Simulated assay, not measured.
Amino acid sequence: MFSVHFSGSKAVLLRFKQEISPKINALVLSTEARIQKSIDANEIYGINELVSAYASLLIYFNPCILSLNTLLNFLESIKKDIKISDQKANLCIEIPLCYDEEFGLDLEFVCKHNNLSKEELIHLHTKPYYLVFMLGFMAGFPYLGGLDERLFTPRLSSPRTKIEAGSVGIADKQTGVYPISSPGGWQIIARTPLEFFNKDDEENPTLLQAGMFLKFKAISKDEFYDIKEQVVKKVYQKEIYEYKNH
């Protein structure tokens, strides 16, 4: 199921089959959920943080509270209990995107590179239910699975010094959303008015979590600014529902 590797004196890395797939990622998240369940039930003490990735799970622990042997024995004991059903029900959040040229800085290039019209690009980009494999690179940045191969586009040859928060781009076989303004080398095709990271929200600073699904929805420029205003006033109602079609 997974192998255990040491990562310094205060962490161990659980490595699963090294491939990017929904099945492997679901197993990673189910393992994380199983460990978190034991933490919440006070069955184990000294685990400080769990960090999931595509096909691995990093466990930070306090060696003054939890010995390495105790942790290893615990991990061995829970293997038989881990089932993908341990994971929480998959939720899907709808993300409004405006593909206007003002926001889609590289929209024309991506269309030309893939021999697509703007309408075809929008259709292909908004059709999938994207799985959030992990958050990384920066706080709240989602690594999504499910991009149509007809949209695959190489990164910029020279990264920009600033990408606006909410910008949505494509880099090789992936699409993603910049949660904050930052440098970046992805091909930018749209922007969302939603906040993907809020440093002032201590309980839920990121909009997404690993294991969720995301569905893009095309909106007009007027709708973008209307939703943006609602977000600023904190009255926007996010569209979140259970995803049952996978």
Rank of each mutant, 00 (worst) to 15 (best):
P159E: 03
N115C: 02
E203G: 03
H246N: 08
N198D: 15
E195G: 04
R155M: 05
A190K: 04
L147F: 03
L116W: 14
I189P: 08
L66V: 02
P128E: 01
L66M: 11
Q174T: 02
G136H: 13
P205R: 01
F61H: 06
I188P: 11
D81G: 09
S56N: 09
L194V: 09
I65P: 00
D222H: 08
C64R: 14
L121D: 04
V28P: 08
H5D: 11
V177H: 11
K173T: 14
F137R: 06
D106N: 11
G146I: 01
I163P: 03
G8F: 03
E195M: 14
D200R: 13
Q237M: 11
L207E: 01
N245G: 01
N114G: 03
L107N: 07
E229P: 00
S21K: 13
P96N: 02
D201Q: 14
E119I: 12
K17Y: 05
I188N: 11
G8N: 01
F152I: 01
A53S: 15
G8K: 03
A171W: 11
K238G: 00
E242F: 15
H113Q: 10
L151F: 07
E76T: 06
Q174S: 00
S85I: 14
Q187T: 00
Q87R: 15
S117W: 14
G176N: 07
S7Y: 12
Y45P: 00
K215S: 02
D81K: 15
R155D: 01
S21E: 06
A165V: 02
K215G: 03
L27K: 13
K17D: 12
F109T: 11
Y99C: 00
V232I: 13
Y236R: 03
K80H: 04
Y143S: 07
R191I: 05
E19H: 07
L121S: 01
A53H: 04
F196C: 02
S67W: 07
S77C: 10
H123D: 11
F16N: 07
K37Y: 14
F224R: 11
E242A: 09
